[in-house]
């Protein structure tokens, strides 16, 4: 029972950076833009967060710095993809490479210096309930914030006029433009939201989860977040389910190494990546489910006519 409870809690924590990054990318893709550079934006967030922390700034400011870094990085992509109408695949890859380089440069002085991580909350009474307390009420504030953001994104996309506009732009930018929506401006905002969320996800890794700066510390989580959006079939609820699935896979793998399974550790480490592929295959086979909520204009540059 104790093992189950601790693995449950560890899964929720491991899923948190993925939830941030994938929810952000979901909004970007819903507007019809494909930003492959999540890995770069997460790394930028992780590095700038650590940089601000070691500059002696309070934690909340360090998080804000990470969010800004992610948004600024996404703006580089936005200018290319939206203003210059370049191939979005190439622009996203450029961002992934650039973000990796910039983060390594920013973080070069901070390697392996432990960060004073954001503490788990201790709620009076609630946190002390046996089992339930540990499973639900002893996380750091960002874990809860991830769920708040899930609510905000779902509400925004499906319950607000702006969300409807954003989805309409993702379906058919030409018709949305014809009835007066500013396609490019709304897509810019979506891209920057995606960048901010990726930056926050990266900061969660460097300021809470690990918590220290290591070069390339995202270890493919930016790409897994991208896979999660495909897995979710562009629905917010399934982003969360997917993130738990991969969080759980990471924790199982670590647990396997901890109890000393007689399998080389590299094989266990490969599990989350292989699981990503397996899940993608299962989900993609069903073409109908994939196309239901798929933003039709995804990845296609838009140029207003007239």
């Amino acid at each position: 029972m104790d093992l189950f409870v601790s693995m449950f809690a560890a899964t929720i924590i491991a899923a948190t950076p993925l939830i941030f990054a994938a929810l952000g990318e979901l909004v970007v893709e819903k507007s019809g833009v494909l930003n492959l550079g999540i890995e770069g934006m997460m790394l930028a967030g992780a590095a700038f967060g650590v940089w601000a922390h070691f500059a002696g700034l309070p934690m909340i400011v360090a998080l804000a710095a990470a969010i800004l870094a992610g948004a600024a990085a996404s703006l580089l992509f936005g200018v290319l993809a939206l203003t210059f109408m370049t191939n979005q695949y190439a622009a996203g890859l450029a961002l992934a490479i650039f973000g990796t380089g910039v983060s390594a440069f920013i973080g070069r002085g901070f390697g392996s210096t432990p960060v004073e991580a954001i503490k788990p909350m201790n709620l009076p009474w609630l946190s002390d309930i046996p089992i339930i307390g540990e499973m639900f009420f002893r996380y750091d504030p960002l874990v809860y914030f991830a769920f708040v953001m899930f609510g905000v994104v779902s509400w925004f996309l499906y319950r607000t006029k702006s969300g409807l506009a954003l989805r309409a732009i993702g379906e058919s930018p030409d018709s949305a433009h014809a009835i007066g929506f500013e396609v490019i401006r709304i897509r810019y905002l979506a891209v920057m939201f995606g960048g901010a969320m990726a930056g926050l996800g990266g900061a969660y890794l460097s300021l809470v989860y690990t918590p220290l700066w290591v070069e390339n510390m995202t270890a493919g989580r930016g790409w897994i977040a991208l896979a999660l959006v495909v897995f979710s079939a562009w629905r917010p609820m399934r982003v969360i389910l997917g993130a738990w699935l991969f969080g759980g896979m990471t924790i199982l793998q670590l647990q396997g190494q901890a109890i000393g399974l007689s399998v080389p550790s590299e094989f266990l480490s490969a599990l989350p990546y292989l699981a990503t592929i397996a899940v993608l295959v299962l989900i993609s086979r069903n073409r109908q489910a994939m196309t239901l909520d798929f933003p039709v204009s995804l990845g296609k540059p838009f140029r207003p006519k007239g």
């Binding site: 290319l80 210059f84 450029a94 961002l95 490479i97 650039f98 380089g101 390594a104 070069r108």
Partner: peptide
């Protein structure tokens, strides 16, 4: 200078290249 500079330049080069393709 740190080696990450080469990566930064690679990314920059690709950014500028894509933009000038416009």
């Amino acid at each position: 200078l740190p080696s990450s500079i080469a990566l930064i330049f690679q990314g920059l080069l690709l950014f500028f290249l894509l933009a000038s393709n416009f």
